[in-house]
Structures are given as structure tokens and as C-alpha cells.
Design a protein around this nucleic acid. Structure first.
Length: 475
RNA sequence: GUCCCCAUCGUCUAGCCCGGUCAGGACACGUCCCUUUCACGGAUGUAACCGGGGUUCGAAUCCCCGUGGGGACGCCA
């Protein structure tokens, strides 16, 4: 924990001015849905590229032909675009180092493999091609794997990590680089592509830290100086042990998209998992995050995901949205959810949204929160109804209110309020004696926007009709 | 089992590099205020330096050892 600030200042304050331009890549494999952890890795790469004026590359690691799918590939594209993490090079974006799908780069891997073979750094075993480490060999029984393995006495590999400092790890076993079916393995293609695409910084999850010694060994075998690594901490699942996986609750980006979360809120939230701008600020615009972000400030310890805080961040962004923007996005949400809002006018829809925006935490609350605005068949919360009817004389209050509203002025919240207040005063009662029962009668709910606002919006006829209809059920 | 990474409120974290502040903020939770409901907002409370040694006048901060958590150990990526 202590060392990182020191490293931050020990290096050049503006590495991108003195070194070759930053080139980073996000290299997902389309073997499953896109989850929070992947999104954050992509985000940190993107942030670093934008911060340094470098290049953000999207590379698809689809060498495992058995597990790849086009569907997952599209999820990756869609999720990245939704989050606003646009790539400068990669599928659909072009670039001078393509193709950007590993399944289309076989010729490049063959070429690099030849270099390794020529240097005597490979051998064939069981039909596969192995990478040969340098050093003396001896056999040893591995308890964990319950088999005899060949160990190699090698010098420690040095991993220069922008987040963790210098990490040494001994790589002591040869490993497969080309499968017996002819397909190259992750370790090989990953390193070859990082060389071929001139990647300067490898920003990836800490789960790859142990692999890095293999990768450094390969870089050295190719005679290439390894890039700067930055192994970011993992995101742990909210409940229970271990890192977050695709199966965990709240793990999938797609899910947040469907639930109407604002992508800018999600981005703001996940960049705070393992990084912070310093000071007490949490909600900050992406442009500012870009300017403040740097690798040495990334935490070294894993973070646990917290959906409550995520929801809170989303609310903050929702609250800050210009009303027209809120309305437009709400429209999209209703459409995506297939929730009908009747054939109301744009003005009416916007007016309803104006009442809802300051009250809700997320778009997913919207359909239930506004159901009674769209038609006359809205659900009634029976528990709330029982509670509202449990005290006073609800039937009398409804009748009085309906009568008074007949002549009330519905042009503004204030005029509706004045009418109800006058009625309450005449009867020696409080506003609240009418408010509760009127709300359940006209909305079916116990909570919602101010009663005067929603009366004004609903209009005299509908309000009175609802009051009378509800009163009639109380026989 | 072996190797690697990590360790401040329940959670995310500031403070650590460069030792001296009532250990600060946010989420969550409690109370109060605002209020015609529910939210928002404001105020406030509960709550943490993993343990043990060492260095030092002084350690959350530096060092060591434990312990705990995480990761890796595939012809997955």
C-alpha cells in the first residue's frame, strides 16, 4: 500500500512525453457474457489511452475455437459501445496492425513460431509444440496435480508492474504454445500480438500476474523488451468468497443496460473500484476522470462489489440529467421494456417524467411509479389500501373531496392545493386527512409525487371519476 | 501442496512514499430536521488502522514473523 505513491513520483511525471506513444489493448475472448471485471479492465485501458493521448486497441482473442461464439462477440461490441469505450484500432475501426481477431492472424503466429524454432526454443511432445525454458531439468512429483512433472532451473523472470512495482517469479516448467490440433495457445498469441501491435502497456486483471512470467520468458525469447505491465486488483463477489464471475448476481453489463442504468453512472462507479481521484470526490465527469487517471494511483487490493452504492451513483446521475434528456431516455426505456404508456401527448409524457425524475433511483422503478398516468386500469397496492382505510372516515373524505374538486381550479399545483386546504379548514381537518386516502384512490399507491401535482396533471374529470369509483368499492 | 499479490469502519476508500491531525469522506444502518405521502436535501450517531515483535521520544505509516483474504499452477483465456 505504501510503496505505490512513492513509485508514482519516482517515475517521470509525464512518461508519455518522453517515451514512445502509449498503445494499450483490451483483449477479451468471446467465450461468455461481458461482466463488470472485464468492463473495468477495458475502462482502465481506455482511460490510460485517453489520459496519455495514446491508442486504445480492441483485439479479439478467439483462439479457442471450441468455446467462441458470434453472439458473445456482439455482446462485447455492444457493451463497449454502450459504456462509451470507443476503440481506435480493432474490428470495425481499422488500423495498421490488423487483423484484430486472432482467428485471422494464424500466418503471423506461424511466422513468429518459426523464429522460436530457429532459435531452438521449441520441441514437439504428444503432438503439441512446447516452449523450452533455459536451464537444467529434473523430474519431480507434483502433489497438487498428482503426476510427475519436469522442472527447469531458470533465472527469475522480472515483471515491471506500474501498480505493484517489480515482481519476480520463477517460471520452472515448459508449456504448450501450439495445441496438437494446430491452434496456437493464449500465451503465444498474446505475446506475439503485443509485439506485433507494438503494445507499450499491458493493463489486465491480477489473475494474469502469474502468467506474466511465461509471457516475459516469451518476450525474451523473441529478443523483445517486455511492455510495462499493470495488474489491476480483482473485483470480488458481493456475497461469499472469490472473485466475481459471470454467474454472479449483478455481474453482467448487459443486465445494467436492460435495467435502464445510465452508462455514465456505471462507468463512474466501476472506475472507483480500485482507483480514486484523491480527496473526497466520487461523482465526476468522464473528462475529469480521464485527466486525473493514472496507473500508479490504482489500488493494489481487491474490491468487493456493492450494488447499493452502484444504485446510489445511478440516482445521482439521474437527478443531474436535464429534464429533456431524462424524458428521452425514459422513452427508450419504456420501449425497450415493452411497457405501454397509452397514446399520451409528448407534453403529458414529459410532465409525468418531470414529476418522477426527482423521486426515483433508477429507470426500472418508472413503470410501476407512473402506471396510473397512462390509463384507468392501474394496479392497487392492497396493503397500502388497507392501511389508508384503517383510520378516520375515508368514505366521507372522498365524497367531500370529489364535491369540492368539482369547482376547483386545476390550472396549477397551487390552485389545487388551495382548494383542498380550504376544504380541510372548513371541516376542521388537516390536508393529510384527505391526502392519504385520495392518493390510494387515484393512484393505487401509498407513495408518489405530490398529490396536488398529480391531480393537476390527471385533470378534474379523471380525478373525480377515480375518487367516486374507488368510494363505490367501499360499500 | 508450490508460487505470486494483498491487508484502514459491514462495503468502497482518504491518510502510508516523506512517522507526530479527535484516522477524513461516500454507500448502508439509527436518530432528528425539512415535509401533505414517498424520495431528495440538511444535521447527527454507531462503526476501522488483522495479530505479535522490532526501529523510534513517537508507528495506520518503516522492518520482520504470523494470520487472514485473493490469484495462478490446462493442449481455457
Amino acid at each position: 500500500m505504501l510503496a505505490r505513491r512513492g513509485r508514482a513520483r519516482a517515475g517521470c511525471a509525464f512518461p508519455f512525453l518522453t517515451m514512445s506513444p502509449v498503445r494499450v489493448r483490451f483483449a477479451p475472448s468471446p467465450t461468455g457474457f461481458f461482466h463488470i471485471g472485464s468492463a473495468r479492465t477495458a475502462l482502465f485501458n481506455w482511460l490510460y489511452a485517453r489520459h496519455t493521448g495514446g491508442t486504445f486497441i480492441l483485439r479479439i482473442e478467439d483462439t479457442d475455437t471450441a468455446r467462441n461464439s458470434e453472439e458473445f462477440l456482439n455482446v462485447i461490441y455492444d457493451s463497449l459501445k454502450w459504456l462509451g469505450l470507443t476503440w481506435d484500432e480493432g474490428p470495425g475501426a481499422g488500423g495498421d496492425f490488423g487483423p484484430y481477431r486472432q482467428s485471422e492472424r494464424a500466418h503471423i503466429y506461424r511466422e513468429y513460431l518459426e523464429k522460436l524454432k530457429a532459435a531452438g526454443r521449441t520441441y514437439e511432445k504428444d503432438g503439441a509444440t512446447w516452449f523450452k525454458l533455459l536451464g537444467d531439468r529434473h523430474e519431480v512429483y507434483d502433489e497438487h496435480r498428482q503426476k510427475t512433472v519436469t522442472k527447469v532451473k531458470t533465472a527469475p523472470m522480472v515483471i515491471e508492474d506500474a501498480i505493484r512495482g517489480r515482481v519476480e517469479r520463477i517460471e520452472d516448467e515448459d508449456f504448450v504454445i501450439v495445441r496438437s490440433d494446430g491452434n496456437p495457445v493464449f500465451h503465444l498469441v498474446n505475446v506475439v500480438d503485443d509485439i506485433a501491435m507494438q503494445i507499450t502497456h499491458v493493463i489486465r486483471g491480477e489473475d494474469h500476474l502469474s502468467n506474466s512470467s511465461k509471457h516475459v520468458a516469451l518476450f525474451e525469447a523473441f529478443g523483445v523488451k517486455p511492455p510495462i505491465f499493470a495488474h489491476i486488483p480483482l473485483i470480488l463477489k458481493q456475497n461469499g468468497p472469490g472473485k466475481m464471475s459471470k454467474r454472479d448476481q449483478g455481474a453482467l453489463i448487459e443486465e445494467y443496460q436492460k435495467r435502464g442504468y445510465l452508462p455514465e453512472a456505471l462507468v463512474n462507479f466501476i472506475c472507483l473500484l480500485g482507483w480514486n481521484p484523491g480527496g473526497d470526490r466520487e461523482k465526476l465527469p468522464i473528462a475529469e476522470i480521464v485527466s486525473l487517471f493514472d496507473l500508479p494511483a490504482v489500488n493494489q487490493s481487491n474490491a468487493r462489489f456493492d450494488d447499493k452504492k452502484m444504485a446510489h451513483m445511478n440516482m445521482l446521475y439521474l437527478l443531474a440529467l436535464p429534464p429533456a434528456e431524462f424524458t428521452a431516455r425514459a422513452r427508450v426505456y419504456f420501449a425497450a421494456q415493452n411497457v405501454s404508456t397509452g397514446d399520451v401527448s409528448e407534453e403529458y409524457f414529459a410532465a409525468v417524467m418531470a414529476l418522477a425524475q426527482p423521486k426515483i433511483k433508477g429507470f426500472e422503478e418508472l413503470p410501476a411509479y407512473t402506471a396510473y398516468f397512462w390509463n384507468e386500469t392501474y394496479p392497487t397496492d392492497e396493503k397500502a389500501k388497507a392501511k389508508a382505510l384503517g383510520k378516520g372516515e375515508p368514505k366521507a373524505r372522498l365524497a367531500e373531496l370529489a364535491g369540492r374538486l368539482l369547482t376547483a381550479d386545476f390550472t396549477s399545483d397551487a390552485s389545487v392545493e388551495a382548494a383542498i386546504k380550504a376544504l380541510a379548514e372548513e371541516r376542521g381537518l388537516g390536508f393529510g386527512d384527505y391526502q392519504g386516502v385520495a392518493r390510494i384512490a387515484t393512484t393505487g399507491l401509498s407513495a408518489g409525487p405530490s398529490i396536488t401535482s398529480l391531480f393537476r396533471l390527471l385533470g378534474r374529470e379523471r380525478v373525480i371519476a377515480r375518487l367516486e369509483r374507488f368510494a363505490a368499492t367501499l360499500m
